[in-house]
Structure formats: C-alpha cells, structure tokens
Amino acid sequence: MMDSTVHRSREVNGDTLARIAQKRRKGPPPKRGYPWGKVSHYVYCALSYIFLLSPMIVVIGASFHGGEYYTAIKFPPEDPSLQWYTKIPTAQFKALALSFGLATLAALGACIIGIPAALGIVRGKLPGRSVISSVFRAPLQIPAIVTGIAFLQLYYLFGDATGLYFQGTFIGLYIGHLFVATPYVVGTVTAILQRFDVRLEEAAFSLGANRWRTFRRVTLPVIMPGVYAGALYSFMVSFADVPISIFLTAPGFVTYPVELFYGMENDFDPSILASSSLVIFFCLLVLLGMQKLVGLDNLLRSGSR
C-alpha cells in the first residue's frame, strides 16, 4: 500500500499539475473534442445509481399507497395516505426493538473485543502476526450461512452436555452476531493504528502522563474515527443479518429482517412496506449523525482494509 499522504501533495500553490503543464506549453491550450468519455462515464454511473437505489425508492413510494388490501402494492402510489403506517402490527415493532438492541450490543461488544485486538496486532511483538490477524478476519471468510448452522449445532452439543440450551435465546443470538461483527472493528482500528505517530504517546508519557492517561487522552482520540467506522459497520451488519439469525431465533423471538423474510414467504402484509420505509429513514438518520460526528469520508478512509 502506498502512503495516503502522497496524493494530497498534487496541488502546488493552488495549481494542479495539469494546469502547470498547460501553462508551460507555448500558445493557446490545445483544442479538445467534446468530452464523450467523461459524459458516458457520468451516464453509466447514473444508471448504476438508478439500479442500486430504485428498490428502496419504490418501497418508500409504495408505502404511501392508499388502496385496499389486495391492490395495496402499487408504484407510483395512488391516493396517497399513511394508512399502512397506522397498521404496523406490534410483532414488527417487537422485532425492530430486538434488532436494535442486539445490533447496539453487538457493536459495543465488537469494540470491547476488537480494539485490544487491533492494538495487539499492530504493536505487539507477535510471532506469526499475519496468521493472528487472519484469524481475526476469518469470520468474514466463512460463508454467513455456514456460521449460522455451525453455531446452531454448537449450541445443541453444548446443551446436550450441560443442559444449557442457547438456541432461541438472546445470548445465543448475540454470540453469533458478535462473531461476525468483531472483524470490522479490528479492521478499521488496525488501519488507523498503522498510520499512528508513536511520538505523540512518547511525548505524553515524557510529560508525566501514566499509561492509562496516555491511552485515554492521546491514543483513544486518534483512533476514534476507526472505532466509529467499525462500530457503524458492525451495527449495520448485525441489524441487517438474515442467514445467521434465521437459525438462532425462535417463534415469537425474531429479529426484524427475519420477521420480514417470513412475512414475504408466507402471508404478505402491506404494512411491511411502511415499517421497511421507517427502517430506511432510520439508516439515513444514523448516517447523518455519523456525518456530523466524524464525516463520511473519514469514516470510509479508516474503513479501508
């Protein structure tokens, strides 16, 4: 990987290199044809965006449709109303609450496990550093559905041995989510730590701060963007998960995506549209908060693995 500070030096006295090159040429700038390459690039990207965003826009749009039950799904919506928003059954709210609590705790747990792991990977004198860091990355390499069934069988075996059955309980679900959430925090914090200037800590230490104070006042603030990024990723991964949760939930105890999944397979209730729209708005809101807190580009830069 190249040093990320290199490409910030491309501006010299406010001039881009391309402009400098142009100034040095004698005479007027060379004539160029219509930039078809650029235009086709923009058009292509616009089509990608339409492809990517259309399902969500359609869901939000259709949620405002005011028709009767069996003609209730229509886009563009006619006779706009909020009727489906008032008809969201409590089961969906219960599922949403479970998903939210689970994702929050998963993000928290991922930080508690992930931050020390990243510190150890970058700074520890480790034999086989690459092996250890690939162990922490492994949960991302294991197909999600395999993780789901693996934990289900682990819980059965553990239950048979101890009488303590974890499947269909919050703890069981939580361990599964924590397993896939942790690698994100490890990844983002590792990325930031690798660029960390150790002299900052040495300065704090030589000025009389103890280890804990140095960590609290110097190290932590610097790695915070990575922590936020990792926490956001792990929250969202947990909040959106189906393949792991579907094995570890039980009737009456389901996360929101699983509730939706069963809803779409069985009895199709248009109120799903309304609650889905609420979730999309919620994701937008979380994002806005993150943009205010650390800035989206900082968030993603530290997310580069």
Partner: peptide
Amino acid sequence: LAGIVVATFVTIVIKVFGLIII
C-alpha cells in the same frame, strides 16, 4: 457516498421487496 452507504446498510430483505414490486 451517502447514497452508496445507505444502500449498503439497508437489509437485503427490503431491497428484494422493492425488486419484486419493480
């Protein structure tokens, strides 16, 4: 970027729902 990030984080079930409508 915000458009991309939202599309990343919204659960696939909702997106499949939209696809079925489209």
